[in-house]
Nucleic acid binder design. Structure first.
Lengths: 143, 143
DNA sequence: GCCAGCAATTTCAAGCTTAAAACTTTTATG
DNA sequence: CATAAAAGTTTTAAGCTTGAAATTGCTGGC
């Protein structure tokens, strides 16, 4: 086994560890402070950034989760009145999802605190580290 | 909101994206090539690296997952004959888990291919990037 | 226009994951 | 020594997640 292989394995283990720790802190924050969860936040954040209705497939692709998964999370958000489904006019297969007024208000209060929490979690990194990390991760995505 | 906050949020989004993509590829690899899953692999890898029996709590702490979660995964691995539970001699509350001979053999074949897969996934990064990333992530863990 | 194939969504079964509660055993304090 | 607090594990209920199958609708070659 090459040296590079070993180092990439070490990198993967550390990447997973940092990501899981951060996820655990964010989950705790959403649960305790807002009675919410990470998947619910992620769906709402995607709808918020998009600023227009989003199909189930688009949500699935952007969130990197399965289509069945999106169905389940949107079901629960819809039951809570935070999002709403409506049919596409151009394609009757497509289901569009958007935030309700209540969902929008809920998300906006959530989002600010969420950002602060993320900043806190990565507060041990210098600004230079943050930028360097972001740049390298950008290269890890390229195919 | 400060500039640093925004940049840390961007970092977090990218970190999550890279980690989820890699996880999806590894999951696919384990499923298609070995009929296994990531959590099962993680438990076996921890037992393998430890080289000696490991308590449920230790597994839970090392894997950064809940204790109930470890119970469920170990249940399934044990049903498949890959690990075995046995009582601790010094503390009757503690349950120790170790790989069976079959589990050990299974894991060793798995591990080599897994490493190659990880190397492939991060093959777009230069060796310098890999090292820089690992170093910065190390700083992200410190508290 | 037909229809074979593709696309969007949901459903389903199985497994993963968590937080909280229950249970057993150990440890520490009085 | 008694016993209250802490620690290790499992159980439970709820939610998350996947891949595959089923359903419905679109599209292009004929």
């Amino acid at each position: 086994m090459s040296e590079g292989t070993k180092r990439r394995l070490k990198l993967w283990i550390r990447l997973l560890s940092v990501t899981r720790s951060a996820e655990a802190e964010l989950r705790e924050f959403l649960r305790v402070r807002h009675g919410s969860t990470l998947p619910r936040f992620d769906v709402m954040a995607t709808l918020y950034r998009r600023r227009e209705p989003c199909s189930m497939s688009e949500l699935s692709r952007m969130l990197l989760v399965s289509n069945g998964n999106v169905t389940a999370v949107v079901d629960r958000l819809e039951a809570d009145g935070l999002v709403v489904r409506h049919p596409s006019e151009s394609d009757r297969r497509t289901v569009l999802v958007s935030l309700t007024a209540e969902g929008l208000a809920h998300f906006e209060t959530l989002a600010r605190e969420h950002e602060a929490e993320v900043a806190r979690i990565f507060s041990t990194l210098s600004d230079a580290d943050v930028d360097a990390l972001t740049e390298i991760l950008k290269r890890a995505t390229k195919r």
